[in-house]
C-alpha cells in the first residue's frame, strides 16, 4: 500500500526531527483526501481510551449550498474537516487557564494539560477557537489531544495518522511540512481560523 501513501516523503520528516533546536511537531491534513469516515476519531478513542463525549479529534461536516429543485443540476458541497488540537504557537487555552495547568513544551511545541493541576473550570474551552479542550465529566478535568505524546516518545506516529483510511493525515515538523507544501504544486495551503493563536496544524485543499 506504500504506493498509495501520496506525497509526503518520509525522509523529509526524519531529517527535520534530527535538526537541533526547538521544533513544532504537528499534523498535516489534506482536505481533498479526507473522506469523512471518522476512523481517526475512533483510532484516537481506542488509543487514548476517552469516554463518550470526550473526543480529542473530531471530524466536522460542513454543508455548503442548497439543493431544492430536482429538475436542476445540484450545486452543493460537503466538506470534512478533521479537528485535532492545533497545538498553537500562542495557545489561547494556556493564557486562559487560571491555575497554569496548560503548558507548551519547548522542545516539540506540544500543548499539554496537567490533569493534577486542572480544576475543571473549562475556561480553556471558552478560549479555544477550535473546540479542542474537552471536559471529562467523570474525572472533572479538562482533557485534549496530546498529539499522542506517549507514542511519539516511543518513536511512533499519532494514532489518528496511523488509522487514517484515506491516508490524508501526516505527522511531522511544522516548518518541514510548510516548506514541502510550498515547494510542490498539488496541494494548496489554507489557514484555519483567525483566532490569532498561531495554530500549528497545517491544512491544504
Amino acid at each position: 500500500m506504500s504506493e498509495l501513501n501520496p506525497i509526503l516523503p518520509q525522509e523529509i520528516i526524519d531529517e527535520s526531527f534530527k535538526k537541533p533546536g526547538p521544533k513544532q511537531y504537528t499534523l498535516w491534513v489534506d482536505l481533498e483526501y479526507c473522506i469523512g469516515c471518522h476512523a481517526c476519531s475512533m483510532g484516537c478513542k481506542a488509543e487514548n481510551n476517552t469516554p463518550v463525549g470526550v473526543d480529542f479529534n473530531r471530524v466536522i461536516e460542513i454543508e455548503e449550498g442548497e439543493f431544492k429543485d430536482p429538475k436542476k443540476t445540484p450545486d452543493i458541497g460537503v466538506y470534512f474537516i478533521p479537528m485535532p488540537c492545533m497545538h498553537c504557537g500562542e495557545p489561547a487555552c494556556m493564557a486562559a487557564c487560571p491555575v497554569g495547568a496548560i503548558t507548551k513544551r519547548k522542545d516539540d511545541g506540544i500543548v499539554l494539560i496537567n490533569k493534577d493541576k486542572c480544576i475543571g473550570c473549562r475556561y480553556c474551552a471558552w478560549a479555544c477557537p477550535y473546540g479542542a479542550p474537552q471536559f471529562n465529566a467523570e474525572a472533572k478535568v479538562m482533557e485534549k489531544c496530546t498529539l499522542c505524546v506517549h507514542r511519539i516518545e516511543k518513536g511512533l506516529i499519532p494514532a489518528c495518522v496511523e488509522t487514517c483510511v484515506a491516508k490524508t493525515r501526516f505527522f511531522g515538523e511544522m516548518n518541514a511540512i510548510t516548506d514541502f507544501v510550498a515547494r510542490q504544486k498539488v496541494a494548496k495551503k489554507v489557514s484555519v481560523g483567525a483566532g490569532g493563536t498561531k495554530p500549528s496544524v497545517i491544512y491544504t485543499k
Binding site: L31, I62, G77, Y79, A125, G131, V192
Partner: peptide, 22 residues
C-alpha cells in the same frame, strides 16, 4: 453556553478552510 460558543468559534475557524473549494 460553552457548546454555543465553541460551535460558533469553530465554525468561524472552519469557514476559512472551505472558502473557495467549491
Amino acid at each position: 453556553p460553552i457548546c454555543i460558543n465553541t460551535g460558533n468559534k469553530r465554525m468561524a475557524a472552519i469557514k476559512n478552510l472551505t472558502k473557495g473549494i467549491r
